[in-house]
Design a protein around this nucleic acid. Structure first.
Lengths: 131, 131
DNA sequence: CTAAACTCGGACCAGAACGGTCGCATATCG
DNA sequence: CGATATGCGACCGTTCTGGTCCGAGTTTAG
């Protein structure tokens, strides 16, 4: 239910690298891959997701690349995770494995929900700039 | 890197159910499965892990079953997660994917480590009794 | 205008992890 | 002694993720 996969890691290190650029400059996916030792063709995928979510912007063409679309201070870890690993949902009520008509189940659902929300809050408080 | 799988859910609901027992009473794995709609033979596995970690104790024999080994107030969610899903490790330095001799990598490692620690802290603050 | 370098997007594959099951040994109570 | 419980280890099927490949559309350089 709460999952921070490797993709999120990649995204975070990439964003951190983009942050070090001069304003106006862009960095290509391949440069990022080489510099950060990320899997060759994984980087474009991760960056594409971040781009279409509006966290970074992509510049096409020969001198293209990626750069932050916002201030690093305004990009939270939670947002990156949500984009790359999806909104983490609770297992219990998602698949119907634990049926919700059971009292015990719904007794447990809300607390787990709170738990989850609290974790995301922690992630929300940390920005790329703080990494 | 942080992963709360379904097993953890199962463990948490089971512990919550065990908490409702009268002191001295025990509840069999099958009873728990039926009452909580958990997968038939998943429950013993989860309970076995919790037992060997000392969170609950098992009573063998005909009238056997499981019961809490400690007060519900003293069992944290973090502990349950750690037992059932293992100590969550950081991806970057675990598999050598991001080599640690790279400065960028080790710049990112510690902050991610802190992040992770903070999340576990949140889980530590919530006990079974509070669910 | 052509060529090169880049992003975009989808299709694709292998491997690991997870959820779930079975069976046998062992211990307890009646 | 027999019935019933856990303990534990071996065992699959499926899903998901990480990772790769390729074609299409775009922009700049020459």
């Amino acid at each position: 239910m709460i999952r921070l996969s490797r993709k999120s890691d990649y995204g975070l290190v990439a964003l951190k690298a983009l942050r070090a650029l001069q304003p106006g400059d862009a960095m290509s996916a391949r440069e990022l891959s080489l510099q950060l030792d990320l899997p060759t063709d994984m980087t474009p995928k991760v960056l594409a997701k971040l781009a279409q979510a509006g966290l970074i912007e992509s510049l096409m063409g020969k001198t293209g690349g990626y750069r932050l679309a916002r201030l690093a201070e305004d990009i939270s870890v939670a947002e990156v995770v949500r984009v790359l690993d999806g909104e983490p949902g609770l297992a219990p009520c998602r698949e119907g494995i634990l049926e919700c008509h059971r009292i015990e189940t719904c007794d447990i659902k809300h607390p787990l929900d709170n738990l989850h929300r609290e974790v995301m809050l922690v992630l929300s408080r940390m920005s790329i700039a703080q990494l």
